[in-house]
Amino acid sequence: MSEFISKKDLLTWLGQLMEERNLVAPTRVDDLLLFSKIDQVEDIVFDFDNTTLSPKEWFYPSSETLFYVEQKDGQTELIPAVIEKETAIFGIRPCDAQGMAMNDFPFLEEPADDLYRQHRDKTALIGLACITACPECFCSSMGSGPHDPANVDILLTEVADGYIAQVLTDKGKALLPDNLLTTADVSSPPAPVLSEVPSDGIAEKMRQAFDEPFWDRLADRCIHCNICSYVCPTCYCFDVRDYTDKERIERVRSWESCQSPGFTRIAGGHDPRSTKGSRLRQRFSHKLLYFPRQFGALGCIGCGRCVRACPVNIDIREIIQDVQQLEVKSEA
């Protein structure tokens, strides 16, 4: 027996959630599938593989104000930004939820990033297990899986006429009104079969491959745009700048990418990562070598977005495979 919610009850419930908090869910915008703030439940898309952009925007916005500086009568005051409203994200896939858990490592490591912590504390995740998968998906090779309940508050799995509901945390419990769930004799559909990527031992192989010309050859093709970083649920580099208008000053942080030229160039001109190959290597080393060393987990969760979006087919699955097989020149 499983806990069950009918499609009709789900819509009613989402409508209630929308009244009391921000409800964020997949929507169709032109040809894209994007997580958007929902004004009417009819806009929610239920039938999808995964969204074009990751839901990281809702924990770690592409741009956000860290604090305001107000200057009045010779006095300066700092006013930190505060996240007021609770948010529920509906339809997050297990891979993306895992992505957020990965971002917790750098952002919540003490001293924690205050805004990120506020977003995280005030956001509940209602996950949707994957019934189908994109050809580029490989989450099961990266420590998660299409039905992974590990990082959501409630996981829903679609079955005939409704969803199996797994309530996994207190936060999830608090979202549900009493008696909304019934029990039903339904069982979970099989998880989709995903392509296998040989991620075992990749950190060590990445270390061995670090000085190989492989990266320069790969960078021949890379155009060094920021697409991979910005569609990625676990890329978290940022830039910080001040904005000034008549009234006040804001300190704003925005996403940045290690791929952009000048990312590491310091005032005065020195750039420790000036070649295309070293920049490209940084992205993959961060995910597959540095992140595991720092936090004990891979920094890629296998959502496949970078594979889909890269204009020149830099394919992390192929890179992992190639690095595993690379014959490293022994140092003579």
């Binding site: 060094h224 920021n226 697409i227 952009s260 000048g262 204009p311």
Partner: peptide, 24 residues
């Protein structure tokens, strides 16, 4: 409003080769 400022348009464009783009 959808633009994510990834600059892929610039990076792929043969006409965009300024050593320092105005946006930077």
């Amino acid at each position: 409003s959808r633009c994510i400022r990834c600059y892929a348009c610039r990076q792929v464009c043969p006409g965009c080769y300024c050593p320092e783009c105005f946006v930077e």
